[in-house]
Simulated assay, not measured.
Amino acid sequence: MNKDELVFLEKIASTDIFLYNKDSIKTILDSPKHYNHGLMIRAAKLSREGFYSLVKYNSGYMLLVPLAKENGLILSPKIDSLNNSENSFSNIDFINHSTSLAKLAYFLYKKESAPNWNLVIYNLNEINDPVQQVQPMKNLHDFHRYANKMVDSFAQLDDKKFKIYINKMKNCQVFGNALTTSNIIRGEKDILIDIISKLTDRAEKEGLPFEKVVFIQSVSVQKIELQANILNFNGWLEEIPYTYFNELKKWRENLFIDKADKIERYLRRNSRENIKLKDIGNELEISEQSLNTIFKKKYGMTTKKYLTQLKIENAKELLTTTQLKIHDISEYLSFIDESYFISTFNKACGMTPSKYRQNYIEKLLNKKSV
């Protein structure tokens, strides 16, 4: 293993790399990482020799690269606090390059040519037989029928049915040669662009602002057209519809909530950032002068104090679920500097971040010894 080369891979792919075995996860590099140990253990158990595995969890993905029977690498995109359409586009990029990324990681770690394995996709919350990205297939009529039902459930924001029909579409395994025998890649792109067209038309009818619809459509089509080939077709087939779904859901929710709640949601979504009143005002189209008055009337505090509370809660989670250093947590949560983070945490919790982490570890050890 060449450590410098893996550091370089992490940097250019914006990915964290871990080593897993039967029941543990290790960081193989020195750089600090925020990760959920239990979630990765669950994902690692899905790995099997002969396949690269892409594991979906909540709104993200992990890539499993087996090195031997019970150990291998986990590649995970670096975390982002923003939950918006750009995350879906990042997921699409990760999905599309997953096979080549897996082979490169295998080669850099073992210093031997990576196996030419197929890729399988799992959903960690819905463990079924994996979907293999290998065989072109059939059933175009059923596919379009499910696509239309998916669009209907999108308009109703029926998450359960929306997910069902996306899975039915994936199970049809319709690849590009279902549309054309002369150009399989073009056919795959045409299927995805047709889905985008259906969702765009319905999103406009449902009232999603024109500029938002055009943004999603243009970025999605551009990403598709720029691909030399469409790897992991089913990954694209899930992420693109959810980009539309999440935006319509957010827009409708904003229609029926008051200004104070809109401010609260903005603060919560962006709690990692160093938010200014100007940022909130520009995003929500509320005057800076009235922001704190509106917010304090409902939440009993200023936006700055509420944002600080959110940062402290995030800090507690990072202290108890990761190995990140205090400095890195401070930087991750956009505090001015480490000393300001420590004093702010101490004021809110009655102890320093280090003491909070130490107390948590001691409690865990005491429980295990009982």
Rank of each mutant, 00 (worst) to 15 (best):
Y299P: 10
P130H: 05
I329L: 03
I196E: 05
L46R: 00
K56I: 01
V370R: 07
Q133A: 13
L291G: 11
K276F: 10
N177I: 05
Y242A: 08
K305D: 15
V131P: 11
V55R: 02
P115D: 06
C172L: 02
F341Y: 04
K223W: 03
I79S: 12
N292M: 01
N128C: 01
K262V: 02
N229R: 11
G60P: 10
F210D: 14
D23G: 14
L255T: 03
S24I: 06
K297L: 05
E5N: 14
A228W: 15
I286C: 13
D159T: 09
K304T: 07
I17M: 12
S90V: 12
S271V: 06
R252E: 15
K189R: 06
L277Q: 15
L248I: 09
L231A: 14
I193P: 01
M150W: 07
E253H: 13
H37R: 08
K26C: 04
Q323G: 13
L192F: 00
S31Y: 15
D258F: 13
I121G: 09
S24F: 09
L82Y: 12
D152K: 13
K56T: 00
D158Q: 07
A203K: 09
I79W: 08
I12F: 12
T27R: 15
F295D: 10
W236D: 05
V174Y: 04
K33V: 07
F107E: 10
L46V: 06
L255C: 12
I193W: 01
G281M: 04
K33R: 03
N58L: 10
K367P: 08
I336L: 07
I127W: 03
D152W: 11
N118M: 07
R357Y: 06
Y306F: 12
S290D: 14
I196Y: 05
N366I: 11
Q358A: 08
N123M: 02
Q132C: 09
R42N: 05
I336P: 09
L64W: 00
K355Q: 06
K347Y: 00
T243I: 15
N87M: 11
N366E: 13
Q222G: 04
K149L: 10
Q156L: 13
E362M: 03
S354P: 10
S197C: 06
